[in-house]
Simulated assay, not measured.
Amino acid sequence: MLLERAYAKINLTLDVLGRRPDGYHEVDMVMQSIDLSDLVWLDKRYDGRIVLETSAAHIPTDDRNLCVQAAKVFFRHTGIQSGVHINLEKNIPVAAGLAGGSSDAAAVLRGLNRLFGTERSLGEIAEMAAEIGSDVPFCVYGGTAIAQGRGERLTHIPHQCQMQVLLIHPRMFVSTGEIYQALEPGDFVSHTTSLVMKEALQKQDVDAIPKLVANRLQRVTFSLYPEVAQLADKVETVTRTRVHMSGSGPTLFCLAPTVQQANRMYNALRGIMRDVYMTHFVTNPPVGG
């Protein structure tokens, strides 16, 4: 049996440039891995079946699950005639804008590569990942990257900046497709913010980074789901810190330069809400468990 860790991500920037002819949107964003992870256990099966078990209720374990899709893509690309038992221990909130499902799928691809000794490079695995979902190629590598196109074109950002991240997850579902479809022409940009964020990360400018966080989907999510906007106002009042949204939401986050400051915010929020997580940037996620 083999273990792969699947790290969540947040968006430090998310700019939308416009709608593409294929129906997707052209994006330019900075994605950052954080130290909140699912555990993906893989074991060979010799009956050709792909079997998924998970600790999480209410998520599919059939072909609708990205882990199962990832295993099928891997076996198709490698020509391996085998099966796998996947045991998924969920810690990342589901449908939260944190790429939990995408990261799980990426972990399956990396893990199967190790389990079967196929020695595919991360670049080759990322090409497989692009068939599964827009965020999956980033999750194959983790760390920090500018993601462009649908999210599959990656430029990695090496940096040593350590920021603490406080996540606040409202227990509700937000439809990513609905959010993108509700974008208006005024939400599209011609100048992106990713290079400015890249510079701040590499300079380890912990004062500038929270001010540079920007998400073009936030206006739409707050408009369609006013309870998320109300929660953001509440968090900002309690923490006296700028509040941001990851992906299409609904998860909110605050950044802090020190563990002590993050602890103060965490303790204040734990008194008024349930799903609060204290974590931090992961700049070089380890491959494997």
Rank of each mutant, 00 (worst) to 15 (best):
L201K: 11
V27C: 01
V136H: 09
H244M: 04
M29P: 06
G97A: 14
V287S: 04
Y180T: 10
V220D: 07
A106M: 13
A57Q: 13
F116I: 03
V243L: 08
I86L: 08
I34T: 04
L36I: 05
L17R: 13
V51P: 04
G79N: 12
G249W: 02
S37F: 14
I132H: 10
T283K: 07
M1H: 05
R110L: 12
L39M: 10
D104C: 06
G249P: 06
I86Y: 14
R19M: 09
R274H: 11
R216P: 00
A8F: 09
P158M: 00
A6M: 04
V206M: 14
H85F: 14
G117E: 15
A147R: 00
N263L: 06
S82N: 13
A126K: 11
R216A: 15
Y24C: 05
R120T: 01
R120I: 01
Y24Q: 02
D47G: 02
T241G: 07
M1N: 07
E236Y: 06
R20P: 02
E131R: 15
A208Q: 15
T221M: 04
Q162A: 03
D207A: 13
L183V: 11
Q202F: 07
T221G: 12
L39N: 12
L2C: 09
F188E: 13
R216S: 15
V73Y: 07
V282C: 08
L217R: 11
L167N: 04
G177N: 14
L36N: 01
A56N: 07
K198V: 05
H58F: 10
